[in-house]
Write a protein that binds this DNA or RNA. Structure first.
Lengths: 198, 198
DNA sequence: TTGGAACCATAACAGGTGTCGTGGTCGGGC
DNA sequence: GCCCGACCACGACACCTGTTATGGTTCCAA
């Protein structure tokens, strides 16, 4: 409790290792939940000696923040994701395919997506995290709106946001306990697009 | 819900107290997250001596299950909620009002709703909880579908499920970090109804 | 070669947590 | 009256967690 002597401010900076630890943390977060996310659990998951995670992320708060950054990086659409369909003429069908891709990406990366929901709840009670999360989400929405308008599709920010809500809810449902398992995810997405695209 | 058998033997049975503890647990779960949900924390929240929660819910798993039961009870629509608008002629506007009510109920009971999301994530990694949750959700959807059809509104189970997804996502967004704070929640609900009701 | 800085492994410690046991209190039936 | 069971307060204990300290290792520049 005597930090007056001054512990060297230097913190581990090996970025590859830090990233590996963050990935391990995401895995733990998805598998064990917020409750199981501890320094030692991340150490075990990453197969590194006890204490390593503690060296890289001084406090649990720092660890959570680090995970959030990494999740953002891992879930961000790759450039080719965006470019893939850029040369096709815009259409409702194209948009539907685009949204299907997003949902597929999220449900496929179950681990990362669940970890993100977990962090979202953490943000519900940590204002600083909420701010970061809000900025990140809004930036994502901005990009979606830009894409939307560049494609000449109808609807503005408000309408694109509707998809955001619906997709968030759909993915959570599908990842945890589907209420309507008979209907395929793609069908649902198509129905959403049919209704919500003006 | 199907597990209406007795409590595990040799356990406290005072239902009023058990319920009070569950409510305290919900408060803790919402405020501190899954991580902060401990027997002692519930004791403190409920203002009872240390050990009480442990007496009523022998293990943490039992505690979580108990909370889930209580949340179900607290979020279930009261009969008058359902009957309130039953005598008005069915219309899109009436349905919109109905959905607005639901969303308002969820966002107002921030505590309970956040706790429910928390449990949902817990269910993502505990199959037995996922089963209970699935049954509960499906029962809710059944009721919604019945109401929907009784009101003579267009659309079946699949369409009602779309509302389920959209509302889940919307409420989470609103409770944590709204991406589109300018638009009022009621406006959003109206837009969803306009689009998703066939 | 040597100095030192960054990086890493390990230990230590104070506190928190799940779980079980044990005795005490209270109220209603004999 | 008294006794029995339900209900409850409290303590104990082994384990886990966050955090900090410290000494060793590696590697590059002087």
């Amino acid at each position: 409790m005597s930090w007056s002597g001054g512990y060297p401010e230097a913190m581990a900076k090996n970025d590859a290792r830090r990233q590996a630890l963050a990935d391990a943390g995401i895995a733990v977060l998805a598998r064990e939940g917020s409750r199981g996310l501890t320094h030692r659990a991340v150490d075990a998951e990453a197969g590194v000696p006890v204490g390593t995670t503690s060296n890289y992320f001084r406090s649990r708060e720092a660890l959570v923040t680090g995970l959030f950054d990494r999740i953002g990086a891992r879930l961000a659409p790759t450039p080719e994701d965006l470019a893939a369909r850029a040369d096709e003429p815009p259409s409702r069908a194209l948009f539907a395919a685009y949204v299907r891709d997003i949902v597929r990406r999220l449900t496929t990366h179950r681990e990362v997506t669940l970890a993100l929901y977990e962090l979202r709840l953490e943000a519900a009670r940590r204002p600083d995290l909420a701010r970061s999360l809000g900025e990140w989400q809004r930036a994502g929405l901005d990009a979606d709106v830009a894409f939307h308008e560049a494609a000449g599709l109808p609807g503005g920010r408000r309408e694109v946001a509707l998809f955001h809500y619906a997709i968030e809810g759909l993915v959570l449902d599908r990842l945890v306990a589907p209420v309507d398992p008979e209907t395929s995810t793609d069908e649902i997405v198509d129905a959403l697009v049919a209704g919500l695209l003006p």
